[in-house]
């Protein structure tokens, strides 16, 4: 392996290591660690329970919230608890949501909230118009943190329609939620270098043969 190839691989590794943390993959939402609260709970109980509204459907590696007939109060949410605190240290600048907009959605946005083990929170809001109907898209939104929020000890994650009107239908299929970092300018340079060098290496190899 020549030095150019080695450098290209190093840069590519730098790109890969600049990763993200999957916070929820929606493969199996229902269970003892998932709670539904308010109107999103089966019996609209303010104590919350593990029983979802009947309009909420588990799919294959995806979870659908169908807002038909479900009041979208901003105090209603799904909350996923982690068995052990999760760290997004180094990947806490953005939250990313991959999902698909349903045709009957009339809501304009939703909110993802992270809760640390001392009940401090961080959140990101997502504009539903940025997603597509029919095919999943991934949208990143910046995270706003309360002072003292601990990115290394995340206890739970909430999804809420969070609309002030409280009446719009929030209808959406979730594929995944991730936490990600803003690449530093130096990382962008490294990424560009890596891609350039990989291209150069491929070109040289092609010329050799």
């Amino acid at each position: 392996m020549n030095r150019l190839s080695l450098l290209a691989i190093t840069c590519a590794l730098a790109v890969c290591s600049h990763g993200q943390v999957t916070l929820q993959n929606f493969s199996s939402v229902i269970g003892p660690n998932t709670y539904f609260y308010g109107t999103w709970e089966a019996s609209n109980d303010t104590g919350g329970s593990i029983n979802p509204n009947t309009q909420f459907i588990q799919g294959t590696d995806e979870y659908t919230i169908d807002g038909t007939g479900v009041t979208n109060a901003d105090s209603s949410y799904i909350e996923f608890f982690n068995a052990l605190p999760v760290s997004i240290s180094g990947n806490s600048d953005y939250l990313g949501v991959t999902g698909t907009l349903l045709t009957n959605n009339t809501a304009s946005s939703f909110q993802i909230t992270l809760v640390d083990n001392r009940a401090k929170t961080a959140f990101a809001t997502f504009v539903l118009a940025n997603f597509s109907v029919g095919s999943p898209a991934t949208i990143y939104s910046p995270v706003t943190m309360q002072p003292g929020f601990d990115v290394s000890a995340i206890d739970s994650l909430q999804i809420s329609g969070a609309l002030p009107s409280g009446t719009s239908r929030f209808s959406f299929t979730f594929d995944s939620i991730t936490a990600a970092a803003i690449p530093e300018p130096s990382t962008y340079v490294l990424i560009a270098m890596g891609l350039g060098l990989v291209g150069l290496a491929i070109r040289r190899r092609a010329q050799r043969f």
Binding site: T113, K120, T121
Partner: peptide, 22 residues
């Protein structure tokens, strides 16, 4: 109220705990 959400607690007779979660 915490950030954009409410975190809800109850007193179980011995201590306070979240209404949701462990």
């Amino acid at each position: 109220s915490s950030g954009g959400t409410w975190l809800t607690y109850f007193f179980n007779g011995s201590n306070w705990q979240r209404t949701t979660g462990p």
